[in-house]
């Protein structure tokens, strides 16, 4: 009997893997097949017209990049120093580090729509930024912070203690050790953190709906409302009858962008890492 349950279990495991793989292939081939027919250079650079049914996604790409830029320019200067403090300068179990860490744990669990509510109340209305690229980018910045901090921290922790001891033996100050030794050695971790944050920010929709807004024209400044790729997909699919083909193409662009960023950066970081540390 045990023999039978063992066999059934084996079959079930393989069946599960097959099932998940085929569903995944179904989604990907469907997106590829439908998306690729509409994709062209033209589509990437022209402005949408007729509520997005025709034309391209030029201004939407620009808005997306601007939102991403605001997000990174604000999250990195807060995230990286926080990670440095947690990994390098806080003793294990110290109350301050523990407090920051548990607060970040909670932040990581906050649903994106709640970030949307907060961004809408705080950035759009309280700080008076209105529906703008700035509000959207800042909201995303709060959202990616836990992710950025955690992977940066892991990168810093992966630097061997020998480095720190050697630096101490040489009489380097903490600042010099950090700047000259630890940060360069931890670069791959920083890059991974950055990629994860970019991917998360690019994929986000709910937090942007009520912060960066819907406008699909070319943004003139950061105070303009701007539509991200993800919101464009949502709007075309839900609110624009006949927008399906364009939504497919936009989804393709979004996924391609995510893939390119992932592949390129991981390739570059391994090469760079080899140049730096293979002693």
């Amino acid at each position: 009997m045990t023999n039978w349950t063992n066999r059934i279990a084996t079959v079930l495991m393989w069946f599960t893997a097959l099932l998940v793989t085929s569903v995944f292939l179904w989604i990907i081939t469907d997106l590829l097949r439908q998306g690729i027919t509409h994709l062209s250079w033209e589509f990437l650079v022209t402005a949408p017209s007729d509520a997005g049914r025709s034309g391209g996604i030029g201004p939407i790409l620009i808005s997306t990049l601007l939102i991403l830029g605001v997000c990174l320019l604000t999250s990195v200067p807060i995230g990286v120093p926080t990670a440095i403090l947690l990994a390098e300068f806080s003793r294990k179990g110290h109350w301050f580090g523990r407090l920051i860490r548990s607060s970040l744990d909670v932040l990581a669990g906050v649903p994106s729509i709640v970030f949307g509510l907060f961004g809408n109340a705080f950035f759009c209305f309280y700080l008076g930024m209105g529906f703008s690229i700035l509000s959207g980018g800042l909201t995303l910045s709060c959202m990616v912070l836990p992710l950025l901090i955690r992977s940066t921290e892991e990168g810093l922790r992966s630097v061997p203690d020998d480095y720190r001891q050697a630096a101490t033996a040489l009489g380097l100050s903490d600042a010099a050790t950090l700047w000259r030794i630890i940060l360069p050695a931890a670069t791959p971790g920083l890059i991974v953190g950055l990629i994860l944050s970019i991917s998360r920010a690019l994929a986000e929709t709910a937090a942007l709906l009520f912060t960066s807004g819907y406008a699909d024209r070319m943004p003139q400044s950061l105070m303009d409302s701007g539509r991200s790729l993800s919101i464009h997909i949502y709007d075309l699919a839900m609110n624009v009858p006949g927008g399906e083909a364009q939504a497919y193409a936009t989804a393709m662009v979004l996924i391609a962008l995510l893939l390119i960023i992932n592949v390129a950066t991981s390739w570059a970081s391994t090469r760079w890492l080899h140049g730096r540390i293979s002693l």
Binding site: P77, I78, G79, P81, T82, I84, L85, L86, F89, F96, L99, I100, S103, L104, V106, L107, V110, V114, F115, F118, F122, C142, L145, I149
Partner: peptide
């Protein structure tokens, strides 16, 4: 400096 920045990161949840 690091502590102050970390405190900012830690306060975001409270702000929300």
């Amino acid at each position: 400096g690091l502590r102050i920045i970390a405190a900012i990161a830690g306060t975001i949840v409270l702000l929300i």
